[in-house]
Design a protein around this nucleic acid. Structure first.
Lengths: 148, 148
DNA sequence: CTTCCTGTAACTATATGAATTACTGTGATT
DNA sequence: AATCACAGTAATTCATATAGTTACAGGAAG
């Protein structure tokens, strides 16, 4: 498949709302930063709003973070936009007549869940505050270099 | 995209090679357990052979594990068949003129890598021996139940 | 030399995600 | 209240990753 950039783009979007909070935040402006279409941005905002991470006003360009940066973890964002898809997929259709085919799902389920939980624990430990801080640090590094 | 079951099916395949080592292991037989086509099985075996996990003989149905079960970790299998794809995708195309768009990739890269490494560490800790043991335990549980 | 099988390439079918088009309805401005 | 800017969302199209299928060359084993 085409690999999903929803998670990545959502983090981008939330950082943008914070850093450019003083601007007129239309879906068009946000889309120009992510380099996607305004409709995609509005769809992402829909998911993030449902998850309680942002607030929006129909008809008016004033999306805003619903909580402080430090209280929004990458895991919350991940669940908001990709929450239904496991990281590792178990083949759902195997031959139940076979010792392997009849039991593999049950067995893999546990180990896959363990691995996913390990990754999620990491995502839970990182907040949008960390992301924004790092973005600003990277930007400062660039500006410290001589310009040509 | 359609979600990949290569990893899952490869674990299935390796377990099958061990448990049914005494059978005539044609790609057709293996395919009937995974409920896929023989060509898909041969393609998976190709990857697993390249990764040094199994040995095969062209023209002859005798695939076999290249090492003991305990020395094959889930991580090795994952790399063999999905190794090129990161678990979390960074949107590669964002507006470099923007503070967020110009730095988000660099920042996400680190955090995504951390999360992926955490998951991989888990996969590295589990071997095909664990998988096969668990499959046999599950099977024994079923056989202990009264049959109708 | 015939049969069974692997290894692959080429093609088709299907699923997911993103982009596009189009529309409804809200809010702000005059 | 009329108009304009914009959010929200459905429906469609387009692109791409995977799996399934067909086809065939070549090895193994009787």
């Amino acid at each position: 498949m085409r690999v999903s950039t929803r998670f990545s783009d959502s983090i981008h979007l939330l950082a943008f709302l914070n850093i450019y909070a003083d601007q007129h935040l239309t879906s068009d402006l946000i889309a120009s930063s992510i380099e996607t279409s305004p409709v995609v941005v509005r769809r992402l905002m829909g998911k993030l709003r449902q998850a309680g991470l942002i607030t929006t006003t129909p008809g008016s360009a004033q999306p805003a973070l619903a909580k402080p940066l430090a209280q929004i973890s990458l895991l919350q964002i991940f669940y908001a936009v990709e929450g239904d898809k496991p990281l590792f997929a178990v083949d759902p259709k195997t031959n139940p007549e076979c010792i392997v085919g009849g039991n593999i799902q049950t067995v893999l389920q546990q180990y896959y869940q363990d691995a996913q939980t390990a990754a999620e624990a990491r995502l839970a430990r990182t907040s949008m505050q960390d992301i924004v801080d790092n973005i600003l640090v990277e930007q400062a590094k660039k500006e410290a270099l001589p310009h040509n």
